[in-house]
Simulated assay, not measured.
Amino acid sequence: MPSPWPLLLDDPATGLDVADREQLIDRLEVLGLTRLEPASVLVNRHLEELPPGTTHAMLLRDGRCLVAGRVGEILAGLQASACFDHPVRFTQVDGWWSVRTRRPAPAE
């Protein structure tokens, strides 16, 4: 086995309820903090499921890499809106990411 050993996860929280999803994310976070620190790849469509401590991200569009790099830079940039072909805004609170749609100001 290579060192560190790889951990590949493809939408691991699909079908889980909120409590089970949170327990999975907590375990992934703890695993990332262990001495073994596996190299992990998490394929996901839901940013609220990114474990705190996630360091890098890659945005794919039509099966191709649109942009890759440090997670904060990737999600703060305009590439995220281009990736989703929709205006989005990412925020991070206590290590947790969330995404909201940018909406135009209401007309008065």
Score class of each variant (00 low, 15 high):
M1I: 08
P2F: 00
P2C: 04
S3L: 07
S3F: 04
W5F: 14
P6H: 04
L8E: 03
L8V: 00
D11L: 04
D11V: 04
P12C: 09
A13W: 06
A13S: 13
T14H: 10
T14P: 01
G15K: 04
G15R: 12
L16H: 00
D17F: 01
A19P: 01
D20V: 01
R21Q: 06
E22C: 01
Q23M: 11
L24H: 05
I25W: 09
I25Q: 12
R27H: 15
R27N: 14
L28S: 03
E29F: 10
E29M: 12
G32W: 08
R35N: 14
R35G: 11
E37L: 15
E37T: 14
E37G: 07
E37R: 15
A39V: 13
A39D: 11
A39N: 12
S40T: 15
R45N: 15
H46F: 15
L47E: 00
L47G: 07
E48I: 02
E48F: 02
E49P: 04
L50D: 08
P51V: 08
G53H: 06
G53D: 06
T54W: 02
T55N: 10
H56C: 10
A57Y: 02
L60W: 12
D62N: 10
G63I: 09
R64E: 13
R64K: 05
C65L: 12
L66F: 04
V67E: 00
V67K: 07
V67Y: 07
A68T: 13
G69N: 07
R70T: 13
R70S: 04
G72W: 06
G72V: 06
I74A: 02
I74Q: 05
I74H: 05
L75K: 09
G77E: 06
L78T: 15
L78Y: 07
L78E: 15
Q79G: 01
C83T: 11
Q92M: 01
Q92L: 10
V93R: 07
W97F: 08
W97V: 06
V99F: 01
V99A: 10
V99C: 13
R100G: 07
R100S: 09
T101H: 10
R102D: 13
R102P: 08
R103I: 10
A105H: 10
P106T: 09
A107V: 15
A107Q: 15
E108M: 10
